[in-house]
Every structure is written in structure tokens, then in C-alpha cells.
Design a protein around this nucleic acid. Structure first.
Lengths: 143, 143
DNA sequence: TAATAACTATTAGTATAACAACTATTTTGG
DNA sequence: CCAAAATAGTTGTTATACTAATAGTTATTA
């Protein structure tokens, strides 16, 4: 493939990732979810793996520590999460959902799924597997 | 495809787009390019389509006006672009590369291509076409 | 033509992202 | 055991993204 043809991959990738996030955020706002897409991702993972250290959570979500610190700050301000001291390492906090945080995740999960599915209309499982293979290859090439 | 399986597309997409940008930015910094990835994209498009109004440029690059205003501010501070008044519409500016801006684009273009190509190792033109088809479909589904 | 609407760019405010620097801890190695 | 290195989290800075608001200009239309 020619260099020029190839160079457009980053443009396509960036454009699409931006629109996917933008679309979700707009639905979130319209529907009064009162969380951002990134805050939602943190909540969802906490629902599935509660009691995680911040740096474990950051690694899982491919976010760096400062970014996660600030997202957790906002979630704590909203009363959806709490920081608890780590039982054996006083440098660390473990992050937990509050009751309200748990309720929020349970309320929003099916709605978020519906929003996410919109993007995939007209595409097949075969497409998904191709898509995954290519994205993983790019990801690993740059790792 | 199941909802859950499907839901991971946005994660894969976001993760990969982030790494592609981050990888490029790290190489840019290492090699002393002295521009960000987004600033580079603006410079490159100005090289190919000079004398554009800011809002035309913003639309072409999928950036909003405030974002583009600030990128242009930074590029002007660096002496790489200038704003000129639009000949017939005093609300608008047209943006042009300076001589230094032109030199910068010509110097960096082959280096940027090499950086971009790294991601695509082990992938074929067939993969690229699949990739493009899927990304375009997602993009249009949400448009 | 005059009032209104639409448009262009900017500014302000909040959120995310990356990096560097810092504090407080814990771990390591001599 | 103690000094040095590593680690966890926070804070600061810069850049980008999105929304809302604003000033200045142009287009519309009553």
C-alpha cells in the first residue's frame, strides 16, 4: 500500500473515535445521566471490580494516574464513589461505589448499551472480528 | 452478536486512537518537531489548501471553532501561520502559512509519514480496506 | 430602510489527556 | 537496620473538546 493511502488511517481512526464519544456524550446529556462518558466508564468498571486501587483501575482503563485522580474527585463530589484507605498500604486508596453509585450503574447500564449499539448497525460479527484484529495489531505495533 | 461483545468496540477504538496519537506525539517531541500532533494536522492541511477561512478549515478537520481558534493562536505565536482579513467578509479571517510554516511542513512531511507507517506493520491493503469500511460505517451511523 | 436574524470568530468555563514535579509511603540492598 | 530507590497519589501546566455567551459583521425581511 502506498504511504499516502496508509497515512489516512490515523485520520479515520481519530475522526471515528471522536464521533463515537461525542455521540454517546450527547445522548448522556439529553437523557440526563449527569455523568460524562469517561466518568461512566469508571463507574461501570467499579461495579464489576469494586475495591480497586486507583493505579490498578487506571491501568485497566488505559488512563494515567493524574487523569484518574481527577475523575475520581468528580465522582466523589457527585456522591457516586468513595475513597477508602488501603488496609496494608497507606500510600493507596481503594475506590468503592456508594449506594447511589450502584443504583446509577444499574439504572444506566441498559440505556448505555442501547446507545452503544447504534454505531454497529449494518455491521456483522465478522466485521467486528476484523475490526478487533486490526485495532489490536495497531495497538501492539506501537506498544 | 451479543450486546456485551459489541459494547467493547468503543473501548478498542478509544484505546487504539489514544495510543496512535500518543505514539506520534512522543516521536514529535523526541525529534524536536516543536508542534503538537493537532497543530501538525492544521499545518499540513494549510499546505495543501492555503488561504482558507477558519470555519472552513475547522469543518474539514472535524474541529470546532473555539478549538481551531486556539490552535491557530499557537501556530501564529510560533510564527508558522498568519491571519489575514477576508477580502469580502470582515467577520472572517483567512489563514496562511508563513515562509517558516511552509519550510516546516516540507521538512517534517517525510518524517511524519515514517512515524505513521509504524502502526501498520503486519497489516495488508485488504486489512486497510476493511478497516476503512467499518470506520466509515460507524461514522455514518452516528452522523 | 430598519429591525431582526444569522454568521464568524473569540472568550470563558469545565472535562479529559499527557507530562513533570512533588509528598508520603514502602521496598530494596548494602 | 538504614540509605537509596521505587511506588501511590496529588498538584501544576499545557493542549484539546465541547458548551455557552459575546462582539462585530452580514443577510434577511417586514
Amino acid at each position: 500500500m502506498s504511504d499516502d493511502q496508509y497515512s489516512s488511517y490515523s485520520f479515520l481512526l481519530d475522526r471515528t473515535a471522536k464521533r463515537v464519544k461525542q455521540y454517546a456524550q450527547q445522548r448522556f446529556t439529553e437523557l440526563g445521566f449527569n455523568v460524562t462518558v469517561d466518568q461512566w466508564i469508571v463507574l461501570k468498571h467499579l461495579y464489576e471490580h469494586d475495591n480497586m486501587k486507583q493505579n490498578e483501575l487506571a491501568e485497566l482503563l488505559f488512563k494515567d494516574n493524574p487523569t484518574l485522580t481527577r475523575i475520581i474527585d468528580l465522582l466523589c463530589d457527585k456522591g457516586l464513589t468513595v475513597r477508602n484507605v488501603h488496609p496494608t498500604d497507606r500510600r493507596s486508596f481503594v475506590v468503592n461505589l456508594t449506594k447511589e453509585g450502584i443504583r446509577k450503574v444499574e439504572q444506566l447500564t441498559p440505556k448505555v448499551k442501547a446507545i452503544r449499539l447504534k454505531a454497529w448497525e449494518g455491521l456483522s460479527e465478522r466485521d467486528f472480528n476484523q475490526f478487533k484484529k486490526i485495532l489490536d495489531t495497531i495497538y501492539n505495533n506501537l506498544g
